[in-house]
């Protein structure tokens, strides 16, 4: 049976999942950097810089000043009220969107987001982050986000709401993957023929949940080109750019099935061009400059697509 969905509610569900995906990615990156900060690696020239660079509004100088300051980073990323992208603020925003679409999300999903919200608002949390409990808190939050995704998959009906949520999630994930990739390729000038070791790349791969897959899929050095293959072009890797774009394409197909508007056709074509751009890039012969361009152009086109998508479906005010 065809079910209509309020534009406002669709907007809320889309952003609910974007915020939760952002939180998930950020916590994973934080967890990786925090745990690796205990190993005093000689080649760790970045510390928390990739995390702070993509997920916060801090200036380059502030990032440089705090890129090795674990105490500051933990509090700033997890529970700082002034940081618009702290886990606390993202969960607040996610919950607000969940409240606005409460009649379309399941009770189980709502209760999970709500209990996460209460946990993030507990007054003792900032103090605990200064103690040995910090790692336990990050682990708990990581698990909460995994649980969120599990509850989402198990309980939510596969209707329009699911499509909007999934598109939101994968736009966010795609942007995260690209930005994290840029954060590790930019310091080496996108050098695909360089000889950075696995210690260098594991930070990126762990931040994207792709370290194990990488170890299983690729043999030995050199890594620079193989990592690009994994994070951008590997269709089996759930965080790769191509995988996320394919999923967006699938859900767009469902949304546009009964939509005969010319704007819908235009948007679908726009996304098709974006996906083809990545899909038909030959990574075997990719040059350093081409890699940089692919990442920059894909980001720009995806941001534009996201804006046009919102205009088409969520223009309710």
């Amino acid at each position: 049976m065809k079910v209509n969905m309020l534009s406002r509610v669709a907007d809320g569900m889309y952003w609910l999942n974007r915020y939760m995906e952002r939180t998930d990615g950020m916590l994973l990156t934080l967890n990786t950097s925090y745990i690796l900060s205990f190993d005093k690696e000689t080649n760790d020239c970045q510390g928390y810089k990739p995390l702070l660079g993509y997920y916060t509004d801090l200036s380059p100088k502030q990032i440089t000043d705090s890129q090795y300051d674990t105490n500051f980073v933990l509090k700033y990323i997890i529970c700082d009220n002034q940081n618009q992208n702290s886990v606390k603020n993202l969960v607040i925003k996610a919950r607000e969107n969940a409240r606005g679409s409460q009649d379309k999300i399941t009770k189980e999903l709502w209760e999970h987001i709500n209990s996460l919200y209460h946990y993030m608002n507990s007054p003792e949390l900032p103090k605990k982050l200064e103690t040995y409990e910090a790692l336990g808190i990050i682990t708990k939050l990581n698990k909460d986000l995994l649980l969120y995704n599990g509850i989402l998959h198990v309980t939510m009906p596969r209707g329009l709401g699911w499509c909007f949520m999934s598109i939101g999630k994968h736009i966010e994930r795609c942007l995260q993957t690209i930005s994290m990739t840029q954060a590790y390729y930019s310091p080496i000038n996108y050098n695909l023929d360089g000889d950075e070791d696995l210690l260098y790349w594991r930070r990126l791969l762990l931040s994207l949940s792709g370290y194990e897959l990488y170890l299983k899929s690729y043999s030995n050095i050199p890594h620079n080109r193989k990592v690009v293959q994994q994070v951008i072009f590997n269709r089996d890797f759930a965080h790769s750019v191509i995988y996320t774009l394919e999923l967006i394409d699938t859900y767009l197909e469902t949304l546009f099935k009964d939509n005969k508007l010319s704007e819908a056709r235009t948007l679908q074509n726009q996304f098709g061009r974006l996906k083809s751009y990545v899909e038909f890039t030959d990574y075997h012969h990719l040059t350093n400059q081409q890699l940089k361009d692919v990442l920059n152009n894909t980001t720009a086109q995806l941001v534009q697509f996201s804006t046009d998508f919102s205009k088409l479906f969520f223009s309710y005010t």
């Binding site: 209509n4 309020l6 534009s7 406002r8 909007f164 949304l255 309710y316």
Partner: peptide, 17 residues
């Protein structure tokens, strides 16, 4: 309220379709 609109004395809700 912002989800609803009245046109020609008929009430409609604004949906994605």
């Amino acid at each position: 309220g912002r989800d609803l609109v009245v046109n020609n004395n008929v009430v409609y809700m604004k949906t994605t379709s």
